[in-house]
Simulated scan of single mutants.
Amino acid sequence: MLNTSNYKQIVSTIMIVVVSNLGVFIISKSDAEINVSKGVFAGTMLAWTKSQSFLDEVYTFNVDGIGGRIESLIDLYAETQSQLSICISIEIVSFSSEDREDRSYCSEGKTIYSLTSDSGADVLSGREELKIGLKNMGHFSWYVANAKSVPFYQRGSISPLFILVLTLVEMLIISYLFAIARRTLEVSKDSPPVSSEQIKLLDLQQSRLANIGKIIDRNKRVFAINKDLLYAEYEHPYTNTIYTNGKKERLRCSLAELENSFSLDLVRLNRSTLVNSTLIREFGEIQTKKDKKSYLLVLQVKSKSVELEIGKQSETTLLKVFS
């Protein structure tokens, strides 16, 4: 039989193990989610640099156009994926002259040197040579790292040596616990159930990459969306995207592909319309239709009113957004 002292030892050890495993789980889960976001970003860069629209801009030496799209992309990630730091550099040579442009774009407060020289950063990078025919038109490089890249044991005054010693002590306590408990308790040999979290994260990455690839392949002059997207309307086989400044782009993709590719908070207004729920409160209001049994979303786009019909299935969601 186990005495009171042994019971106290068992309880104390279980508490140590539970707390330690919980901390490892939280850190591992956060790292897994960040790695998925980094993988999606790398896939987006690779798809974009291979697209016809990007190569056309390289060929025509439209450095400002490429730079604007890069800045929009970095701003989008700053809004929706704040755990990542990004730097992108381009070197483009004019096809018809000796003109050359070197430019770098980074997340706020970052440079390529500071991002890549951080000893605690987990940097994912890539480089694509830009060739049209046999002529080398320059290169395109990107770097993406965890914004909070310092290992957890360095965030305080704890040293790695202390972590090692603590691990050894914990192992000794667990061994002692097993030596006491095996006399009266039956140790289960079953393996713990395998979590589906990693499978879900990989599926999410593959789904987003597939949708982004489809959108880029079908659109030769437009790079997807940015954080200023106000609403999108589907008109087969195109999706019209309307931005807060009144700009309108035409994408060859479905609403579902747009909805499931990017991290904007897009809400279905009806079967053919999506709205950005983070912006519609600033730019619109809900009004009752003449029959007083349904609603309209009235948006102000560059001093013009746009009326969008709210489907029955979306009324509750939209009313909650404006409540």
Rank of each mutant, 00 (worst) to 15 (best):
E285I: 13
S277G: 09
L297R: 00
K214L: 08
G109A: 06
I280T: 00
Q81N: 13
A147H: 12
Y77E: 13
T44I: 04
L308A: 03
L319V: 09
Q81W: 01
S51R: 07
E309T: 07
Q313K: 10
K304G: 01
P192Y: 15
I199W: 03
V169Y: 07
T317P: 00
N21T: 13
R183G: 14
S277A: 13
R221F: 12
L130G: 00
E197I: 06
L161K: 11
G126T: 03
Y238W: 02
S72N: 10
A210E: 06
A181M: 15
Y153R: 11
T111Q: 04
T60S: 14
K131Y: 09
N3P: 05
S30L: 00
T278N: 04
D190S: 15
M171Y: 02
F61W: 02
E129C: 03
Q287S: 13
G133A: 06
T167K: 14
I280H: 00
V169T: 14
F283L: 02
T80L: 14
E170A: 07
G133Q: 06
K214D: 07
M171H: 03
T111L: 07
K227P: 02
L255W: 03
G133I: 03
D56L: 06
Y7L: 15
S51G: 09
V144S: 00
V165T: 15
K135W: 04
L202R: 12
Q9C: 07
Y234P: 08
L209C: 03
R182L: 11
K8F: 15
E257I: 00
E101T: 08
V222T: 13
E315T: 15
F178H: 14
G138V: 04
L266F: 09
S323I: 05
G43V: 01
I242E: 00
F283V: 02
S97P: 01
R155E: 13
L264C: 08
N3W: 05
V169H: 04
L279C: 07
M137N: 06
E235M: 05
I163N: 10
C106Y: 05
S114C: 06
P192Q: 13
S159W: 12
V194S: 06
L130R: 04
K200H: 15
G23L: 09
